[in-house]
């Protein structure tokens, strides 16, 4: 038995550098024009082209959740989408969460409940927690654990992260 000769289309492209084009991203309420090639991920656009380094690069494969941002209020992995695909959408990063009058309750809860150690997963955890509360499907602590499983914390602050989310969800369920 041998492999049949139904080969996939082969790409034999001569090496070349893509041209950049104007990409308009709306980040934290402000429209920004960037010169980007299609191959730039939303994560790299935020960090390297806009200096919004609050959104973290961990695995760059959608497994760790450190790059979580909100797009039209929903949490996504910014490493697995291209910046150019997000034109016209409203992107919120950790830098855009705090209000002029102060931190969001979830940010304060992360401080009060000591929901981090090294802090590298924290922006992603907080954006994910905001997304979780927007979605409204978590009712119990088990639900929180399940629906936060896309965010990894290697320092092991999980129990305090759940406490912080619980604290914000229950006393003020309509705040976020």
């Amino acid at each position: 038995m041998t492999l049949t000769d139904e080969s996939p289309p082969m790409v034999n492209q001569a090496p070349s550098v893509p041209a950049t084009q104007t990409v308009t991203l709306t980040v934290n309420g402000t429209a920004v024009e960037l010169q980007l090639a299609p191959w730039t991920s939303l994560l790299d656009a935020l960090r390297e082209y806009m200096q919004l380094t609050g959104t973290k690069k961990g695995c760059d494969h959608g497994q760790c959740g450190a790059c979580t941002v909100l797009v039209n209020g929903k949490r996504i992995n910014s490493c697995l989408t291209l910046a150019i695909m997000q034109e016209g959408n409203s992107i919120t990063t950790i830098e855009g969460l705090a209000q002029p009058e102060g931190l969001l309750p979830i940010q304060q809860a992360f401080i009060d409940h000591d929901a981090f150690q090294c802090g590298y997963c924290t922006p992603g955890q907080i954006c994910s927690a905001v997304g979780l509360m927007n979605e409204g499907h978590a009712k119990t602590t088990d639900d929180i654990r399940e629906l936060m499983s896309g965010n990894i914390c290697r320092c092991g602050a999980y129990t305090n992260i759940v406490d912080a989310i619980q604290a914000v969800m229950h006393p003020q369920p309509d705040k976020l």
Partner: peptide, 10 residues
């Protein structure tokens, strides 16, 4: 933590 504010705001 003293570094808490910086960590939760990115």
């Amino acid at each position: 933590r003293v570094d808490g504010l910086e960590k939760v705001t990115g």
